[in-house]
């Protein structure tokens, strides 16, 4: 297993946000984590990335216990989170933002290759190379945030709500790019409110409700599951 969470409990002050979450991601998989607002999706991502410390439980990444490591240390191990919403550095240009993704890397030629790769996936970013990120549209910022994560050549790419606040057309586009990234061999754990898109792209998925995993299965199985359809896909 590339990533393994065991009984992860996370608190905000006295409020428990995650009540013992266990989940796994194998190498090469695309795994989706779906759930309603406030179910604990973002908290799970913060716990995995290390932005927030755990109350209890363990997180193993690539065979190593990373529970006690800081976010920047986990990132160096190959775990990269694209945060929810506008996670770009607003005062930096597109190029500088992408450079930040490669902050921990020293291999100049590899970085140049990855610039090519990211610009290949997101031609829009190439057009806007010199633009200050804070002045771009929401969709462009999301592309930039994903591209920036790719610049670190992550072993596991964590995507937190990549479709949030985007027009339907753009959501389609972002998800097809996510599919492309997966095909190129990056393991992905994606958190989504847009369950339909996420489930149709995912090998496996977990359903999160009020801080607990209530269901798991293959993406297609969950798409056909009546209770999932009712709760998350808006079909009775």
């Amino acid at each position: 297993m590339l990533l393994k969470l065991e009984d992860v409990v996370l608190n905000y002050g006295k409020i428990e946000a995650l009540h013992g979450i266990s989940l796994e991601v194998a190498e090469g998989e695309v795994v989706a984590l779906i759930g309603a607002n406030g179910a604990g999706k973002t908290s799970t991502m913060r716990a995995i990335s290390g932005v927030r410390g755990l109350h209890s439980g363990t997180i193993t990444f690539n065979g190593e216990d990373v529970t006690k490591l800081r976010a920047d240390q986990r990132m160096r191990k190959g775990l990269c989170l694209t945060p929810e919403g506008r996670g770009v550095f607003p005062g930096m240009t597109v190029t500088e933002n992408l450079d930040m993704g490669a902050y921990t890397r020293r291999d100049k030629s590899g970085i140049a290759e990855d610039f090519e790769r990211v610009f290949g996936l997101f031609p829009r970013l190439l057009e806007r190379k010199k633009q200050i990120a804070g002045t771009m549209s929401g969709g462009e910022q999301q592309m930039l945030a994903i591209g920036r994560s790719l610049m670190s050549r992550p072993k596991l790419l964590l995507l937190d709500e990549p479709s949030m606040g985007l027009a339907p057309m753009l959501i389609q586009q972002i998800f097809s790019i996510i599919g492309e990234i997966a095909e190129q061999g990056t393991t992905i754990l994606v958190v989504e409110q847009n369950a339909k898109q996420a489930l149709s792209r995912a090998d496996r998925a977990y359903v999160l409700e009020t801080g607990q995993i209530v269901k798991t299965g293959s993406g297609t199985a969950l798409l056909d599951d009546p209770s999932v359809r009712e709760a998350y896909l808006g079909v009775a």
Binding site: G50, A71, M75, F89, G91, M100
Partner: peptide, 14 residues
Amino acid sequence: RAVAQDPDTAALMG
């Protein structure tokens, strides 16, 4: 500059 703009995201970038 990254820490000045967004400390959490800066940590996520290593």
